[in-house]
Each structure stands twice: as C-alpha cells, then as structure tokens.
C-alpha cells in the first residue's frame, strides 16, 4: 500500500495564472527510493512543497495513508511524519549545527536525554564532526550546510524523507556517501525516500524515477488571446 498518493494533482501559482503541475498520479511506497527529475522550472520544488504540506493543491489531492494532506494537522505532519531537506537548506543562522538539529527534535517532541548524542551521531554520519558541529551554520560552507540540513531532516526519524537536490553542492565522494544513507533508509529502515535531482547517478540508484514535464507553454496561451 502506498504511503503517499497523488490523485490528479495540479498546482498553479498566482491564483491560476501560472500553472506548474497538471494531472499527476504518482504513488510512493515505504521501502523505496524515488527520484523526481525534470528541467529547471518544471515544478520539482513545487511538488515537494505540496508533499510536505507547505502548499495546498489547487486541483486534485495528495493522500497520506488514508487522509487528504490538505485536511490534516499540517504542523504535526511536517514536524513528525515528513523530514525535508530544502533546496536552500533553510537552517537557522543564529544557531550552530547541533542546535539546528536539536531544534527539529524539540519541535517534533522527541523525548529523552539522548537527544544531543543522537544529533551528534546524525551529524557524524554526514561528516559534520568536532568544531564544525559547534559552529554557527552561517559560517559553514554550502556543502556543509547541506549536510546539516540532511541531518536535521532525519533527526526525528520521519517515515517520509523529502530532499530537494540534496547532493547539488557535494563532491562525488560525499555524494556517494549521502546516496548510500538515503538508500539505506529506504531499503534497511523501510522509509519512503523521495529525492529531487538533476544527477543521473542519483537517479540511477533510485528504485523509481518520475520525470516531470514542463507545462509552461500552456500557461502562456491565455495571455496571447
């Protein structure tokens, strides 16, 4: 049974003037690694916003288990069920790496005294160790920030992981490392992992690849008439 299911999903910005997604019917299951590809501007980030409940479908709907995502408590959904690695990281600049990870755990309501140890362990998995973990994220490189964002997304052990170009700023070695984390999550821990990527390598390691078509031209037609 699929954990996420798109039913004729459509989305357009500017109250219908800029259609981005149309009639999508994808299904996502636990235990699988998904890659979403498509040209720049095709609407990949938009799709992730919809999947994470930050945006609401303008047509069709997204089912999470048996519930319409637009009808559930989306704060709870975001903080407990879905981990998101944003394309632009969205870390809190006045906090350091560990604190950013810990904050997400706090928001998710993770209990227990092992929080900090777990945060450090997650950061170590993406090679953020020692002084890097204690440095304010603003003073980290793009790749380092990206890895902190990955650690944060995993911090509360979500069932679904959404990652927007998680390897975009990483060297090949680190990229491999991150891919193996993601595939391990899907295959060993039975999570549903959805990665937006331009990288053929990442797409190759995915179980399923969805290719988004650009539907921009359709949006421009009404303006001509």
């Amino acid at each position: 049974m699929s954990i996420l299911k798109l039913e004729n999903l459509g989305y357009s910005y500017d109250s219908g003037k800029t259609p981005v997604l149309e009639n999508l019917n994808y299904e996502f299951e636990n235990g699988k690694l998904y890659a979403v590809t498509g040209r720049s501007g095709a609407g990949k980030t938009t799709l992730l916003s919809l999947l994470s409940g930050l945006a609401t479908a303008t047509s069709g709907r997204i089912m999470y288990l048996d519930c319409d995502v637009s009808k559930i408590d989306r704060y709870r959904y975001r903080s407990r069920s879905v981990g998101v690695v944003f394309q632009n990281f969205n870390l809190l600049p006045h906090l350091n790496a560990v604190e950013n990870v810990l904050l997400s755990m706090d928001i998710a309501g993770v209990k227990g005294g092992m929080k900090k140890a777990k945060a450090l362990e997650l950061l170590a998995k993406v090679d953020i160790t020692g002084p890097l973990a204690k440095r304010r994220v603003l003073k980290l490189s793009g790749g380092e920030q990206q890895r902190v964002a990955i650690a944060r997304a995993l911090s509360f052990d979500p069932q679904i992981l959404l990652a927007d170009e998680p390897t975009g700023n990483l060297d090949l070695d680190t990229q491999d490392q991150v891919i193996s984390i993601f595939s391990n999550l899907a295959h060993a821990e039975n999570k549903c992992v959805i990665i937006v990527t331009h990288s053929p390598q990442v797409a190759q390691s995915a179980d399923v690849v969805y290719q988004l078509k650009t539907i921009r031209s359709a949006g421009k037609q009404p303006a001509k008439t």
Binding site: Y75, R76, V84, F86, L103
Partner: peptide
C-alpha cells in the same frame, strides 16, 4: 525568515 523556517519544520 526565521518565522518561515520554524513553521516550515513544523513549529506551530
């Protein structure tokens, strides 16, 4: 931005 990030990661 801070408000955006906090709410995006699920803070009410």
């Amino acid at each position: 931005y801070e408000v955006g990030v906090l709410t995006a990661v699920g803070m009410k």
